[in-house]
Nucleic acid binder design. Structure first.
Ligand SMILES: [Mn+2]
Ligand SMILES: [Mn+2]
Ligand SMILES: [Zn+2]
Ligand SMILES: [Zn+2]
Lengths: 109, 109
DNA sequence: AATAATAATAGGAACTATTACTATTTAAGT
DNA sequence: ACTTAAATAGTAATAGTTCCTATTATTATT
């Protein structure tokens, strides 16, 4: 999984794993992903209704291209923004889930 | 639904609707919510694995308090941020889904 | 008002991602 | 080798959502 910078689903990982471990079960995939996520070794991201898993442990955000479906890592939510949230709304931010939907640079003519 | 500023689930709406329309079906709730959402009269927000519906049609973001569960409307992603995304990543942003998880002001002593 | 055409609905089946359960296998400790 | 504990495969169960269809309500047309 670390060999890719994609954001695979449990099902994708399951199918990849089957290449080397033909009789692995989907439950094992979910259990291990949950464990890794709980330990902070990977991140779980909610992409609409389904879960994706992210090896990029640094806090970051995503751009989702509605043309090609790519999910691109970006850094947008920074300490400045955290301070604004704190000052303006008196809200102590622990975590941020931000996905920007639009069109990536591959499709600009 | 407009009478509240909460972010109800389909199930919550279904149960509320049953008070006045005792034999309404869940499918009707989903169908009408989808229609309203498609027409832009409400917004669908993905809260983890489940869908919530939002009457606040203005583009806005959310703070989710992990203590009391509240989902608070805020305005964070602005045109400045959109321009940064455009300049830095050459990405044309159409829509943003941002939820900040943390602790709301009700719980600060 | 009666009839025909169209839209909306209830109720339930089907679907999909995920979780829970359990008997069996694998690994570790002595 | 024996005991204990952890991990797993396989399968059943769950939850949210969508799909389907016969029936009901609404609207348009004679
Ligand atoms: Mn990522
Ligand atoms: Mn809102
Ligand atoms: Zn693209
Ligand atoms: Zn709170």
């Amino acid at each position: 999984m670390e060999s890719t910078n994609i954001h695979p689903t449990a099902d994708w990982i399951f199918n990849q794993a089957k290449i080397n471990i033909p009789n692995i079960s989907l439950g094992t995939v979910y259990r291990n992903l949950k464990q890794l996520s709980d330990e902070g070794d990977i991140r779980t991201i909610h992409d609409g209704a389904i879960a994706r898993y992210d090896c990029n442990k640094d806090r970051h955000d995503h751009l989702r291209c509605k043309v090609c479906g790519d999910l691109i890592d970006v850094q947008l939510f920074d300490d400045d923004l955290r301070k604004i949230v704190k000052k303006k709304y008196k809200f102590e931010a622990d975590d941020v889930e931000m996905t920007i939907i639009g069109t990536c640079k591959k499709h600009t003519k």
